[in-house]
Computed example of a mutant assay.
Amino acid sequence: MSTTDFQRAREELGRRLREMRSESPHGRLTGTALARILGWPQSKISKLENGRQTPTADDLRAWVDATGHPGAYEELHARLRGFESEIRSWRRQLARGQRPVQEAHNAAQASARVLRAWESSWVVGVLQTPDYARAILGSFAELHQSPRDIEGAVRSRMRRQAGLYDSGKQYHILLWEGALHARVCPPEVLAAQLDRLMGTVGMDTVRLGIVPLDAALCLPPGNGFWIYDDRVTTETWHAEFWLEGADTLATHLRVWRMLHQSAVYGAEAQRVISRVRRSIST
């Protein structure tokens, strides 16, 4: 589902909500009257009906009860699940903290056999040390003002690394050299993270490629993404996208392969990591 498809689905849900308000068995309700019944600002009614705000499941339950259509809840909730399964806002996902998000990725990676990643901003979670993960997760908790369940989220992320020792899996991971330089954590933590990466090179289940800063590129680095078999996940500052479909998969595979052409592996990758490691004063 693209962002345009998501917005269209949200607008269609809004039209259905407006229809229910207009056809209330209690008599036609105005938006103002419904807002008064629900104890909501009238602007929320308008935003929901015009597809400018995504309702929660609780919003839908309150709406059907207030408009006299309790039997419509399952239909509306199914619509909501349908488009939210693709675009998941961080505000909603992090309402219960970061651990549930980590567990969702753990499940997705556990069920996949071939995993491909491109990351230009930080070291991917499955290769992180606990201290590096703690710094990354802490910065996002601060950004989104989410519950600070950092230690639980770190433990969950570390459990994901069991897949690295599963002979039935193959990880094809590409990292932009810039991600190795990024001071997203204290210098000593970054140094230990780079040491961890050095040890990853040569693992049976992992093919780690580094795209050097001075490499000729077929494409700009762009945003990072994972491909879990035939499903793509990527993220923005606002939301996480879980995408399916032949066209989506083909595009991301093509991007990955074009970036792969600029990557170095094995001893060359270790030399790049070592060069960055030597530049860090701890």
Rank of each mutant, 00 (worst) to 15 (best):
residue 136 I to P: 00
residue 231 R to H: 11
residue 223 N to P: 10
residue 229 D to Q: 02
residue 32 T to K: 11
residue 117 A to W: 04
residue 43 S to Q: 13
residue 153 A to W: 02
residue 80 L to C: 06
residue 26 H to A: 15
residue 56 T to V: 09
residue 87 I to W: 00
residue 73 Y to V: 13
residue 80 L to S: 08
residue 60 L to F: 02
residue 92 R to W: 12
residue 234 T to L: 12
residue 5 D to N: 08
residue 213 L to W: 14
residue 147 P to E: 11
residue 204 D to C: 05
residue 236 T to K: 07
residue 8 R to I: 13
residue 179 A to M: 04
residue 36 R to Y: 00
residue 110 A to P: 00
residue 239 A to P: 02
residue 2 S to V: 02
residue 38 L to W: 07
residue 277 R to A: 04
residue 77 H to R: 15
residue 149 D to S: 05
residue 202 G to D: 01
residue 169 K to T: 11
residue 87 I to R: 03
residue 186 P to D: 14
residue 271 R to W: 00
residue 177 E to K: 05
residue 177 E to I: 05
residue 231 R to Y: 02
residue 100 P to E: 08
residue 27 G to E: 04
residue 134 R to S: 10
residue 231 R to K: 08
residue 123 V to F: 01
residue 46 S to F: 01
residue 20 M to K: 03
residue 41 P to R: 14
residue 187 P to G: 10
residue 138 G to T: 12
residue 274 S to I: 00
residue 271 R to L: 03
residue 118 W to D: 02
residue 51 G to Q: 05
residue 115 L to V: 15
residue 235 E to P: 11
residue 150 I to G: 07
residue 89 S to C: 00
residue 50 N to E: 07
residue 98 Q to P: 03
residue 79 R to I: 13
residue 58 D to T: 12
residue 22 S to D: 12
residue 208 L to Y: 06
residue 88 R to H: 11
residue 2 S to W: 06
residue 107 A to I: 05
residue 18 R to C: 01
residue 110 A to C: 05
residue 207 R to L: 11
residue 144 H to F: 13
residue 101 V to T: 14
residue 53 Q to D: 03
residue 117 A to I: 00
residue 46 S to L: 01
residue 246 A to P: 01
residue 51 G to I: 03
residue 185 C to R: 03
residue 225 F to N: 11
residue 108 A to I: 10
residue 65 D to N: 12
residue 158 M to F: 02
residue 116 R to C: 08
residue 88 R to Y: 04
residue 159 R to E: 15
residue 114 V to S: 08
residue 105 H to Q: 09
residue 222 G to W: 09
residue 132 Y to C: 02
residue 148 R to Y: 13
residue 243 L to Y: 05
residue 13 L to R: 01
residue 142 E to F: 06
residue 233 T to A: 14
residue 237 W to E: 09
residue 85 S to C: 10
residue 8 R to C: 01
residue 42 Q to N: 05
residue 147 P to V: 08
residue 281 S to A: 09
residue 141 A to R: 08
residue 9 A to G: 04
residue 78 A to N: 08
residue 22 S to R: 12
residue 75 E to M: 13
residue 268 E to C: 10
residue 1 M to V: 09
residue 99 R to M: 02
residue 136 I to M: 05
residue 34 L to E: 03
residue 150 I to F: 10
residue 8 R to M: 09
residue 224 G to P: 00
residue 96 R to F: 06
residue 124 V to M: 14
residue 146 S to W: 08
residue 216 A to L: 06
residue 4 T to H: 13
residue 148 R to A: 14
residue 81 R to H: 06
residue 151 E to P: 01
residue 176 W to T: 09
residue 76 L to G: 07
residue 2 S to F: 08
residue 9 A to T: 05
residue 153 A to K: 04
residue 111 S to M: 13
residue 240 E to M: 15
residue 209 G to C: 05
residue 217 L to Q: 13
residue 2 S to L: 11
residue 205 T to W: 08
residue 132 Y to V: 12
residue 223 N to V: 11
residue 257 R to Q: 11
residue 159 R to D: 12
residue 193 Q to G: 01
residue 245 G to D: 02
